[in-house]
């Protein structure tokens, strides 16, 4: 908390002000280092040869030896796990937007009995430890033949992503004045045409961002993935299940494989971070 007080512009002149400024800058830089250095160290390990990874002491500089990465990529099961992760994440993305966006639209555009109840249920889902759903669903999936499938896991990940999809699309739609739709109706559109010609083009960037967000939620999820997949393991499931048997350089390359796409996604949707988390969590 010591960083807080000096962050306000001090009213005292001269030294105090300059000192405050320095504390502020130092705090900012240190916090940035706290976030960035660990990621950098992971990358250093990934870009070092296997012997360097288990060597000691380390220099903290990468040797740009790609042996670890090659080892990881050619390791049995990795390519498949990567592919499975992508499939599950894409399915999650499609399901959560496909199911969530209509609900978000309904919440934003209509007043109807039951609206608040639905909103409450959606908000409430976050008060539950959702990965636990995987336990009973494992049984149910065996019964209906969804066990160990990408679709089955995508259903669980969609439960995780759906509340966000609903609340985010709700706020996206609420940002489009209803008059734009009404104007389209008076100009000859039916509801669907007005939606496609007017609303869609306007919310598309936000919709893509929330889709990417759903993708990331699925991409990162560990527990349900580990419970529900055996043969068709995702990357997280693969890594968590082979942690105690795999060599260090495999773990670090795997960690990087998890981190890099997530970093790219976060960067791609950075403009929407607040719409995603800030508003969705009100």
């Amino acid at each position: 908390m010591s960083t807080l007080a000096p962050t306000d512009e001090p009213r005292a002149v001269g030294d105090t002000r300059r000192a405050g400024r320095w504390v502020f800058i130092t705090a900012t830089v240190m916090l940035m280092a706290w976030v960035l250095v660990p990621i950098y160290l992971l990358f250093v390990n990934t870009l070092s040869s296997p012997s360097e990874v288990s060597g000691f002491p380390k220099t903290g500089l990468p040797s740009f030896d790609f042996a670890s990465v090659e080892f990881f990529l050619s390791f049995s099961g990795v390519a498949r796990a990567l592919w499975n992760s992508v499939v599950v994440a894409v399915l999650t993305m499609v399901l959560s937007i496909g199911i969530g966006a209509p609900a978000g639209y309904a919440l934003s555009r209509f007043d109807f009995p039951g609206k608040e109840v639905f909103r409450m249920v959606v908000v409430m889902t976050r008060a539950f430890p959702l990965p636990l759903l995987a336990l009973p669903l494992a049984v149910m999936f065996i019964r209906v033949g969804l066990d160990d499938t990408a679709l089955g896991l995508a259903f669980v990940h969609t439960v995780l992503a759906l509340p966000f999809a609903v609340l985010i699309t709700f706020s996206l739609f609420s940002g489009i004045p209803i008059e734009l739709e009404e104007a389209a109706w008076t100009l000859g559109c039916n509801r669907l045409q007005a939606f496609i010609k007017v609303v869609m083009p306007l919310i598309l960037p936000g919709l893509v961002a929330s889709a990417v967000f759903a993708f990331t939620i699925s991409w990162n999820e560990v527990f349900a993935a580990a419970v529900l997949t055996i043969e068709n393991r995702t990357l997280t499931a693969f890594l968590v299940q082979s942690l105690n048997v795999s060599p260090l350089h495999l773990k670090f390359a795997g960690g990087t494989a998890l981190v890099v796409p997530a970093l790219i996604f976060i960067f791609a949707v950075r403009k929407y971070l607040f719409a995603m988390w800030g508003i969705a969590n009100r």
Partner: peptide, 11 residues
Amino acid sequence: FAIPLGLSDLA
């Protein structure tokens, strides 16, 4: 500051 938000707990 927001970067870790997108990272898996496993990562």
